[in-house]
């Protein structure tokens, strides 16, 4: 028997029942449907002790690393404090320490965080506007560091309330509130030889850059291919840094792609995802990370799966602009 804490409630899970059964017995409503680990409706996260491995059957390994599990498969082996996904309301204070242009449309914003802010490379946070309180999701573009600084690549959108404010008015010294880090698109160690494909458009490079740095820091051995796409050459950024990384790591391959501008040597002509899947068309045993325009992400996910990548090995992070967010 183990004590389970959920929100402000506490219950005891009996040896002969799953956590979901214990919740239902106590009339605590959580989403549930198939009760056999297939539908994943009852996805929960342990906030302290790791859940039993058997309760993580079928989940992506990045979710497993974040201690997510299925309540219907969970026979607790120790006490746990659990939560439903993305219900953490913790806000952290961050101070802007630097803002600099990366290209005509994208600025790099560096923030100093509190030491208790933790993240996996590739996750995102919601940044809150200090006056209106409006928030937007932005991917963290660096890896966790001792100095607790995090950086973002923020692209100016036409009529974008938040991004125009960042570009025009945000100054170093400003104090902002940010959410806890979210998302399951990140590097998971343990398959150091696995080849990995990264495809991103625009500022979709941010989380990919972070994940690639993380993978290389953790000694990833397999080939890592990055296809970064933009309509015009000026839309690419971090080109020098990425070329330097490719020179320094023989397993890292950088492919900048431009879809509607000719005549630049060393740049591939075409859409990044088209070029990537022409050049690498057998994705069996690959891990694939996609980030950027939602249509590109959706289409490429499907193609990558048809080309042999397992769905569990495809990590997609579509960038929706604010309107459709519910």
């Amino acid at each position: 028997m183990h004590n389970i804490t959920f929100a402000d409630k506490s219950l005891v899970c009996q040896p002969d029942e799953t956590l979901l059964q214990a919740f239902l017995r106590e009339n605590i409503e959580i989403p549930n449907s198939c009760h056999q680990g297939a539908c994943q409706s009852c996805l929960m996260q342990s906030l302290d002790n790791p859940p039993p491995a058997s309760a993580q059957n079928g989940l992506k390994d990045s979710l497993q690393a974040q201690k997510y599990f299925l309540a219907c498969l969970c026979r607790p082996e120790q006490s746990m404090t659990v939560a439903l996904p993305n219900t953490s309301n913790n806000l952290f204070v961050a101070h802007v320490v630097k803002k600099e242009p990366l290209n005509p449309d994208i600025v790099r914003v560096v923030m100093q965080c509190q030491p208790d802010f933790k993240f996996f490379a590739g996750q995102f946070v919601n940044i809150h506007h200090p006056v209106s309180g409006v928030s937007r999701s932005y991917s963290i573009a660096n890896v966790p560091k001792q100095d607790n600084q995090i950086e973002f690549h923020i692209r100016r959108l036409n009529n974008g309330y938040f991004s125009n404010w960042v570009h025009d008015d945000l100054t170093p010294g400003t104090e902002l509130a940010i959410s806890s880090a979210q998302g399951s698109c990140h590097y998971v160690p343990g398959k150091a030889q696995q080849p990995m494909l990264f495809i991103g458009t625009g500022s979709g490079l941010a989380p990919l850059y972070s994940i690639i740095l993380d993978a290389l820091n953790q000694g990833h051995q397999g080939d890592i291919h990055l296809y970064h796409g933009s309509t015009v050459f000026d839309g690419l950024y971090l080109v020098q840094e990425l070329r330097a990384m490719a020179a320094g790591f023989s397993n890292f391959h950088y492919h900048p792609c431009v879809s509607s501008e000719l005549g630049n040597p060393n740049i591939k002509i075409g859409r990044a995802h088209d070029i990537a899947l022409q050049e690498i068309s057998d994705l069996r045993s690959w891990r694939v990370y996609l980030c950027g325009h939602p249509e590109m992400v959706k289409q490429t996910k499907r193609t990558a799966f048809l080309y042999g990548a397992s769905l569990k090995e495809i990590y997609a992070d579509p960038f929706y602009s604010s309107q459709p967010k519910s």
Partner: peptide, 21 residues
């Protein structure tokens, strides 16, 4: 696609005579 795969898993479990709701 992830939700669809989860549904297909439930479907196959049923077709294979396994536990299903």
């Amino acid at each position: 696609m992830d939700q669809q795969a989860a549904k297909q898993k439930a479907f196959f479990t049923m077709a294979f005579g396994g536990p299903n709701n």
